[in-house]
Amino acid sequence: HIECVVCGDKSSGKHYGQFTCEGCKSFFKRSVRRNLTYTCRANRNCPIDQHHRNQCQYCRLKKCLKVGMRREAVQRG
């Protein structure tokens, strides 16, 4: 199976330009649609994997963008 490029979980297909799991797909869509801004409580390099992906939204969104998920691919409302 193909892994989610963000957290390594099982990918459910290509979403917003990259293969991601449902969790990262939904997180990215929600973040972009609502134009959410997050803050990192650590050093902005938190581990984002299957077990830690919900611990830091700032670093999760940063990783989504770093691996090539595209904001412009998210349809507005």
Rank of each mutant, 00 (worst) to 15 (best):
K14T: 08
E72T: 05
T37R: 13
K66C: 06
L65G: 04
L36P: 12
C56Y: 02
V74L: 06
S11R: 04
E22P: 10
Q18S: 10
E3F: 07
V6C: 06
F19L: 07
K29W: 07
V67A: 08
C46D: 03
E3M: 09
C7K: 03
F19N: 12
S12Q: 11
L36S: 07
Y16R: 05
C56M: 02
H52I: 13
L36Y: 03
I2A: 01
D9C: 02
L61R: 01
N45Q: 14
R71E: 14
I2S: 00
C7G: 02
G17E: 07
P47G: 07
K66H: 08
G23Q: 12
L65F: 10
Y58R: 04
S12A: 10
S31Y: 07
G77S: 13
H1S: 05
C56N: 04
V32P: 04
Y16E: 09
C7H: 00
A73I: 06
L36F: 14
H52N: 08
R44M: 12
F28L: 01
C56D: 01
K29P: 03
Q57K: 04
R70N: 13
G68H: 01
V6E: 01
S11A: 06
G23F: 12
H15E: 15
C24V: 03
C56F: 03
R60P: 02
C64T: 01
C24H: 00
E22L: 08
L61T: 01
T39F: 15
K14H: 15
C56G: 01
R60G: 04
H51I: 06
V5M: 15
R71K: 14
E3R: 04
V67M: 13
C64M: 09
S31W: 06
A73K: 06
K10V: 06
R30Q: 04
H1T: 13
C24L: 01
Q50S: 08
Q57L: 06
C4M: 03
V6Y: 04
C46Y: 01
R41P: 15
E3T: 09
R41I: 14
V67Q: 12
R33S: 09
R71Q: 12
Q75A: 14
C56P: 00
Q18H: 10
F19S: 12
H15Y: 07
C4R: 03
G13A: 15
N54M: 11
M69D: 00
G13S: 06
N35M: 08
S31K: 02
K25Q: 12
A73R: 05
D49H: 05
G13F: 06
H52S: 08
L61C: 02
H15K: 01
N54D: 09
E22F: 06
G8Y: 02
D9Q: 14
K25M: 15
K25G: 13
S31P: 00
C7V: 03
H1I: 09
E22V: 09
S26E: 14
Q55L: 09
R41D: 13
G77C: 08
H1M: 15
D9Y: 04
G13N: 09
E22G: 13
S12C: 03
L36E: 14
G13Q: 13
H51D: 10
K29V: 11
S26Y: 04
F19E: 14
A42R: 08
Y58L: 04
Y16Q: 13
C46T: 02
F28S: 01
S26A: 06
G68R: 02
R41H: 12
H15D: 06
S31I: 11
T37W: 14
R70D: 14
Y58C: 08
R76G: 14
D49Y: 05
K29M: 09
S26R: 10
M69R: 01
N35A: 09
K63E: 07
C4F: 00
R34E: 14
Q50K: 13
P47I: 07
Q55G: 11
Q57T: 08
R41L: 15
F28P: 00
D9I: 06
G77W: 06
L61P: 02
F27W: 02
S12M: 08
K63W: 04
R33I: 13
V67G: 05
R53D: 12
C40T: 03
S26M: 15
K29Y: 03
P47T: 07
E22C: 07
C21M: 00
K29I: 06
V5N: 14
K66F: 11
N43G: 12
S26D: 05
C56L: 02
N35Q: 14
D49A: 08
L61G: 02
C21H: 01
Q18K: 10
K14A: 15
R33C: 02
E22I: 03
C64D: 00
N45H: 06
K25I: 12
C56H: 03
Q18L: 11
P47E: 10
V32R: 02
P47W: 06
R41F: 06
R53K: 06
Q18V: 15
D49L: 08
K66S: 13
R44C: 07
K14R: 06
C64S: 03
C21S: 01
D9E: 15
T37M: 06
C24D: 04
N43H: 05
F28T: 00
L65M: 09
V6A: 04
G17H: 04
N45S: 13
Q18R: 10
N43R: 11
I48R: 04
C56K: 00
F28E: 03
C46K: 02
K62L: 11
R60K: 11
K25S: 13
C64I: 00
H52Y: 06
R71I: 13
G17I: 03
F28A: 01
Q57I: 13
N54L: 10
R76F: 13
A73L: 10
D49R: 05
H15I: 13
S12L: 05
F27D: 01
P47S: 07
D9G: 09
R53N: 10
R34P: 05
N43I: 04
C7N: 03
C59Y: 01
G68S: 03
L36D: 06
Q55D: 14
L36N: 04
V74M: 06
A42N: 04
N54G: 07
V6L: 00
Q55S: 09
V5A: 15
N35D: 15
K25A: 13
T39C: 05
T37L: 09
R76L: 12
R41W: 14
H51Q: 13
V32F: 09
E72V: 05
C4W: 00
R71A: 11
V32M: 13
R71P: 12
K66N: 12
L65I: 12
G23I: 02
C59A: 02
T20K: 00
N54Y: 08
V67R: 07
R76I: 11
C46L: 03
C21V: 00
S26K: 15
G13Y: 01
T20F: 08
